[in-house]
Design a binder for these strands. Sequence first.
DNA 1: ACTGCCGGGCA
DNA 2: TGCCCGGCAGT
Length: 396
Amino acid sequence: MAAVGSRAGLDTISMCTEGQDGLVYMQCCGQGEGQGVQRKLNAGPGTEWSADGNTQQTNLLSFPRSSGVDLPYSPESVEMDEIMAAMVLTSLSCTSPVVQSPPQRDLLTGDMECCGGELSDSGSSGYWSWDHGSVSPAPSPSVTEMDRSLDQPTDEGLHMELDEAACEEPKARRCKSLSRGAYRCLWPGCGKVLTSRVGMKRHIRILHLGGGSEQSQREEDFYYTEVSSEDEETAPPSPAPSFSSGAWTSCSSTQSQSTPGHQDAPVQSSPLSQSAPSSVWQIHTEHLYQACTPVQVMVSPGSPTFCSWSPSGDVQQKPQISASRSRSVSVGEQWLQRNSAPTRSQTMSASPSRGHCSFRKGRGEAKKCRKVYGVERRDQWCTACRWKKACQRFPD
DNA sequence: ACTGCCGGGCA
DNA sequence: TGCCCGGCAGT
Protein backbone atom coordinates (compact mmCIF):
# COMPACT_ATOMS: atom_id res chain seq x y z
CA MET A 1 0.00 0.00 0.00
CA ALA A 2 2.40 2.53 1.09
CA ALA A 3 5.95 2.38 0.23
CA VAL A 4 8.25 4.86 1.63
CA GLY A 5 11.79 4.85 0.68
CA SER A 6 14.53 7.13 1.53
CA ARG A 7 17.45 7.65 -0.60
CA ALA A 8 19.34 9.64 1.82
CA GLY A 9 22.21 7.44 1.14
CA LEU A 10 22.08 6.42 4.68
CA ASP A 11 19.25 4.18 5.21
CA THR A 12 16.71 2.62 3.18
CA ILE A 13 13.47 1.84 4.69
CA SER A 14 10.69 0.50 2.83
CA MET A 15 7.44 -0.31 4.27
CA CYS A 16 4.37 -1.76 2.93
CA THR A 17 1.25 -3.03 4.38
CA GLU A 18 -0.40 -6.06 3.17
CA GLY A 19 -4.00 -5.72 2.53
CA GLN A 20 -6.49 -6.42 5.21
CA ASP A 21 -4.49 -8.20 7.72
CA GLY A 22 -2.71 -4.97 8.24
CA LEU A 23 0.62 -6.55 8.44
CA VAL A 24 3.34 -4.14 7.96
CA TYR A 25 6.59 -5.11 6.52
CA MET A 26 9.46 -2.89 6.86
CA GLN A 27 12.90 -3.14 5.71
CA CYS A 28 15.59 -1.05 7.08
CA CYS A 29 19.06 -1.04 5.83
CA GLY A 30 21.54 0.74 7.92
CA GLN A 31 24.07 2.81 6.23
CA GLY A 32 26.96 0.92 4.93
CA GLU A 33 26.04 -1.82 7.20
CA GLY A 34 24.55 -3.74 4.47
CA GLN A 35 22.49 -5.43 7.00
CA GLY A 36 18.87 -5.23 6.57
CA VAL A 37 16.40 -5.72 9.25
CA GLN A 38 13.12 -6.96 8.37
CA ARG A 39 10.36 -6.55 10.73
CA LYS A 40 6.88 -7.52 10.64
CA LEU A 41 4.62 -5.50 12.68
CA ASN A 42 1.18 -6.22 13.54
CA ALA A 43 -0.88 -3.23 12.94
CA GLY A 44 -4.27 -4.39 12.23
CA PRO A 45 -7.17 -2.15 11.77
CA GLY A 46 -7.94 -0.27 14.84
CA THR A 47 -4.80 -1.37 16.44
CA GLU A 48 -2.89 1.17 18.26
CA TRP A 49 0.68 0.78 17.51
CA SER A 50 1.77 1.32 20.94
CA ALA A 51 -0.51 -1.30 22.18
CA ASP A 52 1.43 -4.01 20.55
CA GLY A 53 3.53 -5.98 22.80
CA ASN A 54 6.09 -6.22 20.18
CA THR A 55 9.13 -6.29 22.35
CA GLN A 56 11.55 -3.83 20.98
CA GLN A 57 9.16 -1.92 18.99
CA THR A 58 6.82 -1.37 21.76
CA ASN A 59 8.66 1.51 23.19
CA LEU A 60 9.20 3.23 20.04
CA LEU A 61 5.93 2.63 18.54
CA SER A 62 4.43 4.34 21.42
CA PHE A 63 5.42 7.45 19.63
CA PRO A 64 2.33 7.70 17.67
CA ARG A 65 0.26 7.18 20.63
CA SER A 66 1.87 9.72 22.71
CA SER A 67 1.91 11.85 19.72
CA GLY A 68 -1.73 11.99 19.80
CA VAL A 69 -1.87 10.52 16.38
CA ASP A 70 -4.51 8.14 17.25
CA LEU A 71 -4.24 5.53 14.75
CA PRO A 72 -7.32 3.74 14.24
CA TYR A 73 -5.65 2.52 11.22
CA SER A 74 -7.43 3.81 8.22
CA PRO A 75 -5.94 2.19 5.23
CA GLU A 76 -7.69 4.43 2.87
CA SER A 77 -5.83 7.38 4.02
CA VAL A 78 -2.60 7.91 2.33
CA GLU A 79 -1.79 10.55 4.81
CA MET A 80 -2.12 8.06 7.53
CA ASP A 81 0.11 5.73 5.74
CA GLU A 82 2.69 8.33 5.58
CA ILE A 83 2.32 9.11 9.15
CA MET A 84 2.71 5.54 9.99
CA ALA A 85 5.65 5.28 7.75
CA ALA A 86 7.04 8.17 9.54
CA MET A 87 6.50 6.52 12.83
CA VAL A 88 8.09 3.40 11.70
CA LEU A 89 10.99 5.15 10.25
CA THR A 90 11.46 7.04 13.39
CA SER A 91 11.26 3.91 15.35
CA LEU A 92 13.65 2.12 13.16
CA SER A 93 16.10 4.86 13.22
CA CYS A 94 16.18 4.31 16.88
CA THR A 95 15.95 0.60 17.03
CA SER A 96 18.37 -0.36 14.41
CA PRO A 97 20.88 -2.79 15.75
CA VAL A 98 23.62 -0.35 15.27
CA VAL A 99 21.71 2.08 17.25
CA GLN A 100 21.42 0.06 20.26
CA SER A 101 24.91 -1.08 20.42
CA PRO A 102 26.17 1.13 23.17
CA PRO A 103 23.40 1.21 25.63
CA GLN A 104 25.54 2.21 28.52
CA ARG A 105 26.86 5.27 26.96
CA ASP A 106 27.29 8.30 28.90
CA LEU A 107 23.79 9.12 29.64
CA LEU A 108 23.78 12.68 28.80
CA THR A 109 25.74 12.26 25.70
CA GLY A 110 23.57 9.53 24.57
CA ASP A 111 20.57 11.52 25.32
CA MET A 112 21.87 14.41 23.52
CA GLU A 113 22.51 12.33 20.57
CA CYS A 114 19.08 11.11 20.83
CA CYS A 115 17.88 14.58 20.86
CA GLY A 116 19.89 15.51 17.96
CA GLY A 117 18.72 12.53 16.15
CA GLU A 118 15.18 13.06 16.97
CA LEU A 119 14.87 16.65 16.61
CA SER A 120 17.44 17.69 14.23
CA ASP A 121 17.92 16.59 10.78
CA SER A 122 20.94 18.69 10.52
CA GLY A 123 24.23 17.57 9.35
CA SER A 124 25.30 15.48 6.54
CA SER A 125 23.51 12.48 7.72
CA GLY A 126 20.39 13.54 6.01
CA TYR A 127 18.32 12.55 8.86
CA TRP A 128 14.73 11.72 8.44
CA SER A 129 13.38 15.05 9.09
CA TRP A 130 10.69 14.54 6.64
CA ASP A 131 8.97 11.85 8.47
CA HIS A 132 8.69 13.98 11.45
CA GLY A 133 7.03 16.33 9.24
CA SER A 134 3.66 14.89 9.52
CA VAL A 135 4.30 13.76 12.97
CA SER A 136 6.04 16.65 14.36
CA PRO A 137 5.50 20.07 13.02
CA ALA A 138 9.03 20.99 13.68
CA PRO A 139 11.71 18.83 12.26
CA SER A 140 13.95 21.47 13.64
CA PRO A 141 16.45 21.16 10.94
CA SER A 142 19.49 22.81 12.19
CA VAL A 143 20.93 24.17 15.29
CA THR A 144 20.33 27.67 14.37
CA GLU A 145 16.88 26.87 13.45
CA MET A 146 16.44 25.10 16.65
CA ASP A 147 17.46 28.12 18.47
CA ARG A 148 15.01 30.10 16.60
CA SER A 149 12.36 27.60 16.97
CA LEU A 150 12.39 27.63 20.66
CA ASP A 151 8.91 28.78 20.52
CA GLN A 152 7.94 26.16 18.13
CA PRO A 153 5.99 23.18 19.04
CA THR A 154 8.99 21.01 19.05
CA ASP A 155 9.81 22.20 22.43
CA GLU A 156 6.39 22.34 23.65
CA GLY A 157 6.53 18.87 24.84
CA LEU A 158 9.59 19.71 26.65
CA HIS A 159 7.96 22.61 28.21
CA MET A 160 5.05 20.63 29.22
CA GLU A 161 7.24 18.09 30.72
CA LEU A 162 9.55 20.33 32.46
CA ASP A 163 7.54 23.14 33.65
CA GLU A 164 3.96 23.10 33.03
CA ALA A 165 3.11 25.98 35.18
CA ALA A 166 5.57 28.35 33.73
CA CYS A 167 4.51 27.50 30.33
CA GLU A 168 0.93 28.50 30.40
CA GLU A 169 1.57 31.76 28.82
CA PRO A 170 4.34 30.79 26.46
CA LYS A 171 2.18 27.98 25.37
CA ALA A 172 -0.42 30.32 24.18
CA ARG A 173 2.20 32.27 22.43
CA ARG A 174 3.52 29.17 20.88
CA CYS A 175 0.14 28.13 19.78
CA LYS A 176 0.02 31.26 17.84
CA SER A 177 3.36 30.71 16.39
CA LEU A 178 2.21 27.34 15.37
CA SER A 179 -0.07 28.94 12.94
CA ARG A 180 2.73 30.95 11.61
CA GLY A 181 3.38 29.04 8.48
CA ALA A 182 3.76 25.67 6.98
CA TYR A 183 5.25 24.25 3.90
CA ARG A 184 3.53 21.81 1.74
CA CYS A 185 5.36 19.49 -0.49
CA LEU A 186 4.18 19.85 -4.02
CA TRP A 187 5.70 16.71 -5.25
CA PRO A 188 3.09 14.75 -7.07
CA GLY A 189 1.35 12.51 -4.67
CA CYS A 190 3.18 13.74 -1.67
CA GLY A 191 1.57 16.76 -0.19
CA LYS A 192 3.41 16.45 3.03
CA VAL A 193 3.23 19.44 5.24
CA LEU A 194 6.05 20.57 7.39
CA THR A 195 6.38 23.59 9.49
CA SER A 196 9.98 24.07 8.85
CA ARG A 197 11.26 25.25 5.58
CA VAL A 198 14.51 23.53 6.07
CA GLY A 199 12.77 20.39 6.98
CA MET A 200 10.72 20.63 3.89
CA LYS A 201 13.71 21.21 1.76
CA ARG A 202 15.35 18.27 3.24
CA HIS A 203 12.29 16.23 2.80
CA ILE A 204 12.21 17.07 -0.84
CA ARG A 205 15.84 16.63 -1.34
CA ILE A 206 16.01 13.32 0.36
CA LEU A 207 12.79 11.83 -0.65
CA HIS A 208 12.09 13.22 -4.02
CA LEU A 209 15.25 14.57 -5.43
CA GLY A 210 17.10 11.74 -4.00
CA GLY A 211 20.30 13.14 -2.88
CA GLY A 212 22.17 16.12 -1.74
CA SER A 213 23.63 17.39 -4.90
CA GLU A 214 23.99 21.08 -5.15
CA GLN A 215 21.56 21.22 -7.93
CA SER A 216 18.92 19.35 -6.12
CA GLN A 217 19.38 21.67 -3.23
CA ARG A 218 18.35 24.50 -5.36
CA GLU A 219 15.57 22.62 -6.91
CA GLU A 220 13.89 22.01 -3.66
CA ASP A 221 12.40 25.41 -3.69
CA PHE A 222 10.28 24.49 -6.59
CA TYR A 223 8.67 21.62 -4.92
CA TYR A 224 7.17 23.10 -1.91
CA THR A 225 4.95 25.95 -1.19
CA GLU A 226 4.22 27.91 1.82
CA VAL A 227 0.79 27.41 3.16
CA SER A 228 -1.01 29.07 5.91
CA SER A 229 -1.14 26.49 8.57
CA GLU A 230 -4.72 27.24 9.30
CA ASP A 231 -5.54 24.45 6.95
CA GLU A 232 -2.89 22.43 8.52
CA GLU A 233 -4.21 22.93 11.92
CA THR A 234 -7.21 20.97 11.04
CA ALA A 235 -4.94 18.08 11.36
CA PRO A 236 -4.29 17.14 14.93
CA PRO A 237 -1.70 19.53 16.13
CA SER A 238 -0.80 17.59 19.15
CA PRO A 239 1.41 14.96 17.66
CA ALA A 240 4.44 17.01 17.68
CA PRO A 241 4.52 18.11 21.23
CA SER A 242 4.22 14.81 22.82
CA PHE A 243 6.32 13.20 20.24
CA SER A 244 9.14 15.47 20.75
CA SER A 245 8.31 15.44 24.34
CA GLY A 246 9.34 11.91 24.39
CA ALA A 247 12.51 12.61 22.68
CA TRP A 248 13.27 15.57 24.70
CA THR A 249 12.47 14.18 27.99
CA SER A 250 14.93 11.51 27.46
CA CYS A 251 17.19 14.27 26.58
CA SER A 252 16.50 16.68 29.21
CA SER A 253 16.76 14.71 32.30
CA THR A 254 19.89 12.75 32.31
CA GLN A 255 18.42 10.41 34.76
CA SER A 256 15.10 10.46 33.16
CA GLN A 257 13.91 7.09 34.08
CA SER A 258 11.04 7.42 31.86
CA THR A 259 8.48 4.92 32.63
CA PRO A 260 8.95 1.65 30.92
CA GLY A 261 7.07 1.93 27.79
CA HIS A 262 8.43 5.29 27.09
CA GLN A 263 11.17 5.14 24.70
CA ASP A 264 14.38 6.04 26.18
CA ALA A 265 17.25 3.71 25.99
CA PRO A 266 17.00 2.45 22.47
CA VAL A 267 16.95 5.87 21.10
CA GLN A 268 20.40 6.66 22.01
CA SER A 269 22.83 6.75 19.24
CA SER A 270 22.12 5.81 15.79
CA PRO A 271 24.00 6.02 12.61
CA LEU A 272 21.29 8.31 11.61
CA SER A 273 21.72 10.61 14.42
CA GLN A 274 25.38 10.46 14.68
CA SER A 275 25.76 13.74 13.09
CA ALA A 276 23.49 15.25 15.57
CA PRO A 277 25.59 15.31 18.66
CA SER A 278 27.82 17.96 17.40
CA SER A 279 25.00 20.24 16.67
CA VAL A 280 23.32 19.53 19.85
CA TRP A 281 26.51 20.06 21.55
CA GLN A 282 26.64 23.35 19.91
CA ILE A 283 23.41 24.16 21.46
CA HIS A 284 24.74 23.02 24.68
CA THR A 285 27.71 25.17 24.55
CA GLU A 286 25.76 28.07 23.38
CA HIS A 287 23.43 27.87 26.21
CA LEU A 288 26.20 27.05 28.44
CA TYR A 289 27.77 30.19 27.40
CA GLN A 290 24.66 32.06 28.15
CA ALA A 291 24.09 30.33 31.34
CA CYS A 292 27.42 30.37 32.90
CA THR A 293 28.81 33.59 31.85
CA PRO A 294 27.04 35.55 34.42
CA VAL A 295 26.33 32.99 37.00
CA GLN A 296 29.69 31.43 37.38
CA VAL A 297 28.55 27.93 37.00
CA MET A 298 31.11 25.49 38.09
CA VAL A 299 31.92 23.61 35.01
CA SER A 300 34.96 21.59 34.75
CA PRO A 301 36.18 21.99 31.23
CA GLY A 302 37.13 18.42 31.15
CA SER A 303 33.68 17.18 31.62
CA PRO A 304 31.61 19.18 29.32
CA THR A 305 28.61 17.10 29.77
CA PHE A 306 28.35 18.22 33.24
CA CYS A 307 27.44 21.73 32.77
CA SER A 308 24.37 22.46 34.67
CA TRP A 309 22.56 23.17 31.58
CA SER A 310 19.19 21.76 31.31
CA PRO A 311 16.75 22.13 28.57
CA SER A 312 14.31 23.55 30.92
CA GLY A 313 16.65 26.26 31.83
CA ASP A 314 17.49 26.64 28.31
CA VAL A 315 14.12 26.87 26.89
CA GLN A 316 12.69 29.01 29.49
CA GLN A 317 15.71 31.02 29.73
CA LYS A 318 14.72 33.30 27.02
CA PRO A 319 13.54 36.03 29.23
CA GLN A 320 16.54 35.67 31.41
CA ILE A 321 19.09 35.86 28.76
CA SER A 322 19.10 39.53 28.39
CA ALA A 323 19.27 39.97 32.08
CA SER A 324 22.12 37.59 32.28
CA ARG A 325 23.94 39.31 29.58
CA SER A 326 23.63 42.67 31.07
CA ARG A 327 24.67 41.28 34.33
CA SER A 328 27.74 39.76 32.91
CA VAL A 329 29.11 43.14 32.30
CA SER A 330 28.78 44.20 35.81
CA VAL A 331 30.34 41.02 36.98
CA GLY A 332 33.23 41.67 34.77
CA GLU A 333 33.57 45.09 36.10
CA GLN A 334 33.37 43.94 39.62
CA TRP A 335 36.04 41.48 38.90
CA LEU A 336 38.12 44.08 37.33
CA GLN A 337 37.70 46.52 40.10
CA ARG A 338 38.41 43.93 42.68
CA ASN A 339 41.55 42.89 40.97
CA SER A 340 42.73 46.17 39.83
CA ALA A 341 42.36 47.81 43.18
CA PRO A 342 45.49 46.49 44.84
CA THR A 343 47.83 46.27 41.95
CA ARG A 344 46.30 47.64 38.95
CA SER A 345 48.69 46.89 36.26
CA GLN A 346 50.08 43.64 37.31
CA THR A 347 47.05 41.61 38.08
CA MET A 348 45.11 42.69 35.16
CA SER A 349 47.43 41.03 32.81
CA ALA A 350 47.10 37.85 34.73
CA SER A 351 44.72 36.10 32.54
CA PRO A 352 41.28 36.32 33.94
CA SER A 353 40.44 33.16 32.19
CA ARG A 354 37.55 31.71 33.98
CA GLY A 355 37.16 28.35 32.48
CA HIS A 356 35.49 28.11 29.21
CA CYS A 357 32.98 30.62 30.26
CA SER A 358 35.70 33.15 30.08
CA PHE A 359 34.90 36.28 28.31
CA ARG A 360 37.29 38.23 26.34
CA LYS A 361 37.76 41.22 28.39
CA GLY A 362 35.64 43.70 26.73
CA ARG A 363 36.94 47.03 25.83
CA GLY A 364 34.44 48.55 28.09
CA GLU A 365 35.91 46.82 31.05
CA ALA A 366 39.31 48.29 30.72
CA LYS A 367 39.56 51.54 32.51
CA LYS A 368 41.77 53.85 30.70
CA CYS A 369 42.52 57.38 31.43
CA ARG A 370 39.91 58.53 29.11
CA LYS A 371 37.33 56.52 30.85
CA VAL A 372 38.48 57.25 34.31
CA TYR A 373 38.89 60.93 34.00
CA GLY A 374 36.78 61.64 31.05
CA VAL A 375 37.52 63.86 28.19
CA GLU A 376 36.91 66.94 30.28
CA ARG A 377 39.87 66.21 32.47
CA ARG A 378 42.14 65.27 29.75
CA ASP A 379 44.99 66.95 31.45
CA GLN A 380 44.90 64.23 34.05
CA TRP A 381 45.40 61.54 31.52
CA CYS A 382 48.68 59.86 31.22
CA THR A 383 50.75 61.21 28.44
CA ALA A 384 50.30 58.13 26.36
CA CYS A 385 46.60 58.53 26.51
CA ARG A 386 46.90 62.14 25.66
CA TRP A 387 48.95 61.20 22.70
CA LYS A 388 46.54 58.52 21.77
CA LYS A 389 49.03 55.89 22.54
CA ALA A 390 48.67 52.80 24.63
CA CYS A 391 47.74 53.83 28.07
CA GLN A 392 50.57 53.60 30.52
CA ARG A 393 48.70 54.30 33.63
CA PHE A 394 46.30 51.46 33.21
CA PRO A 395 48.04 49.08 30.94
CA ASP A 396 46.30 45.93 30.00
C1' DA B 1 28.97 56.69 18.50
C1' DC B 2 32.56 55.70 21.47
C1' DT B 3 37.03 53.91 22.72
C1' DG B 4 41.87 52.27 22.50
C1' DC B 5 45.82 52.80 20.10
C1' DC B 6 48.85 52.17 15.85
C1' DG B 7 51.15 54.63 12.51
C1' DG B 8 52.81 58.58 10.97
C1' DG B 9 53.57 63.60 10.57
C1' DC B 10 55.34 67.89 12.41
C1' DA B 11 58.19 71.11 15.17
C1' DT C 1 61.99 63.48 21.25
C1' DG C 2 57.73 65.37 22.40
C1' DC C 3 53.40 66.25 20.71
C1' DC C 4 49.48 65.62 17.97
C1' DC C 5 46.10 63.44 15.05
C1' DG C 6 44.12 60.38 11.13
C1' DG C 7 42.28 56.35 10.91
C1' DC C 8 41.36 51.55 12.01
C1' DA C 9 39.30 48.01 14.71
C1' DG C 10 36.52 46.58 18.38
C1' DT C 11 32.49 47.39 21.19
